[in-house]
Each structure stands twice: as structure tokens, then as C-alpha cells.
């Protein structure tokens, strides 16, 4: 069984981000990058399915050279090979354009299953998996928290709103967007890290895929710090100076002391 995991690299969760000069992206200079949160769960689920079904996992990542680091990590955790779609200057922020590039890059691989995380922590469009499914003519499910292969079908458990869940079944090949939660995230072992070095990474140039890269229906005009709607008392300084001020608020404003 051939399984792909679409994996994105995003700024580390703990990074204090600043905007770049023209307000179109973040200032990447002092920022570290890591694998997107829900994509970790996607990778974990892909590896689980591969283990039980004699499968092979291909990591598919689009981005500039820095994403090689995330690819290496995913290979160290057990993925078998990777496709790096090189997009040096991250030309388009349009969700449809990005999905088209990925669909073009994976089309010829005939995957039985394409997994992605539910949404990325940068743009957060949450559309890539759904769009790739439609482009490749495959059925899909989102918000997936459990999977079970039954012959040429896959049964998935989906998260619904208000604490509810639903089971549905799809014919393979299919695309699934994975929600965070129920599987354990694998760690890279020393052996895994050693083996990762020998695993094949295919380089594909985004420019060579025949997709119109610039433009698209949506154009990102600017990114900015939101204007606050609520009045907030901001307390800064060392613990000894802020703690009495918090106590004062708990007593006199929140009235819980």
C-alpha cells in the first residue's frame, strides 16, 4: 500500500514572531521552523497504517530549502522516502494554487492513501487535503481521528461538533485530513536518524509542474497586528513586582479573594 503524508513546515509554536518590513510575511531571520502540529498526527497515522498493511510512506513537502530539515525528521521517525517540492520564494499564498502544485507533484505516484494534517499553524486555510482530493478525483474525509483498513475500503472515525463522533467508510484510494489527538506521536530513534540519511528524497521544482504560480484568485495584501477590542491591563516586570498587582486585581476587580 502506497501512502503519502502531506507535511508542512511552520514557525515553532513558541517563537515570538515579528512582521517583515512590507507586512507580507513574518521576519524569518531569528525564527526556527518545525513540522506543523496536526501533520505530526498525520505522519503517526500514516506510519501505523503502513505497519499493519505492508505499506510504504512517502513524505511530500513543499517549501524552500529549510524544509529539508523537517523531511529528515519525518524520515527518521520511519517514513520511507520523500518528495521535496522546491518553492524557493514561497511565491503564492493562494490556497488553490498551492494545492494544484501538490496535486501535480503526486499525481503520477498513484497513492492508495493521501494523508494531511487538518490545518497549518501559519495561514491556517485547512483546505489542502480537500482540494487535492477533488483535483485527483478521490473521495476524502476531514477531522479524522482513527482509521481502519478493510480490504479496498477504509473506515474512519471523524470528530464532530459538541463532543460527538461519526464513523464513515470510503473506498480506496482516498484522502484524509487528520485531526490532533488519539494516536501517539512517534519519536525519532538514533537508529532512525542514521537510516534517514540513506532514504531517497526526490527533488521537484515547483516551477516545472506547469502550474501558474503567481496570482490566483486571492492576493494577500498585508499582515498586521490586530487592533484590540477590549481594555486590558498589561503587567510586565519581574515576578515580585507583578504578583502584588495580580493579587490586587483578583481582590478588587475579579472579587475572588
Amino acid at each position: 500500500m502506497k501512502i503519502a503524508i502531506l507535511l508542512k513546515q511552520v514557525p515553532v509554536k513558541d517563537a515570538t514572531l515579528e512582521l517583515n518590513g512590507d507586512g507580507t510575511w513574518i521576519d524569518e531571520d531569528d525564527v526556527q521552523f518545525e513540522i506543523n502540529d496536526s501533520d505530526h498526527y498525520g505522519l503517526a497515522e500514516a506510519l501505523n497504517i503502513a505497519k499493519d498493511n505492508d505499506g510504504e510512506v512517502t513524505v511530500v513537502t513543499m517549501g524552500p530549502d529549510r524544509v529539508k530539515e523537517s523531511i529528515k525528521q519525518a524520515l527518521a521517525k520511519g517514513a520511507h522516502q520523500a518528495i521535496h517540492i522546491n518553492d524557493e520564494d514561497v511565491k503564492s499564498s493562494d490556497p488553490l494554487t498551492r494545492a494544484k502544485i501538490i496535486a501535480e507533484a503526486v499525481k503520477g505516484e498513484n497513492f492508495d492513501l493521501i494523508l494531511s494534517g487538518l490545518q497549518s499553524d501559519d495561514y491556517g486555510y485547512g483546505q489542502t487535503g480537500v482540494l487535492v482530493a477533488e483535483m485527483l478525483g478521490m473521495p476524502h474525509a476531514t477531522l479524522v481521528v482513527e482509521t481502519e483498513i478493510n480490504g479496498d475500503k477504509i473506515k474512519v472515525k471523524r470528530e464532530l461538533e459538541g463532543g460527538w463522533f461519526q464513523n464513515i467508510e470510503l473506498p480506496l484510494p482516498a484522502v484524509l485530513s487528520i485531526q490532533s489527538g488519539l494516536t501517539d506521536i512517534p519519536y525519532a530513534t538514533i537508529k532512525g536518524i542514521m537510516m534517514a540519511k540513506k532514504k531517497p528524497v526526490a527533488d521537484v521544482e515547483a516551477d516545472d509542474l506547469g502550474v501558474e504560480l503567481e496570482g490566483g484568485a486571492f492576493k494577500l495584501e498585508k499582515i498586521y497586528t490586530p487592533v484590540k477590542s477590549k481594555e486590558t491591563a498589561v503587567l510586565k516586570g519581574d515576578a515580585d513586582s507583578v504578583v502584588p498587582q495580580i493579587i490586587d486585581k483578583l481582590k478588587n476587580a475579579a472579587k475572588v479573594l
Partner: peptide, 18 residues
Amino acid sequence: TLTKQVFAGKFNADYSFS
């Protein structure tokens, strides 16, 4: 102009549609 949150709510982004 459409506005959405990006970077998990740290910033807002404005998009135009054509």
C-alpha cells in the same frame, strides 16, 4: 477585502479577491 487570522491568531491578514 477579506480578513482572516494567521499564525494561530497572532496576526490578521487582509486578502483581496479578483
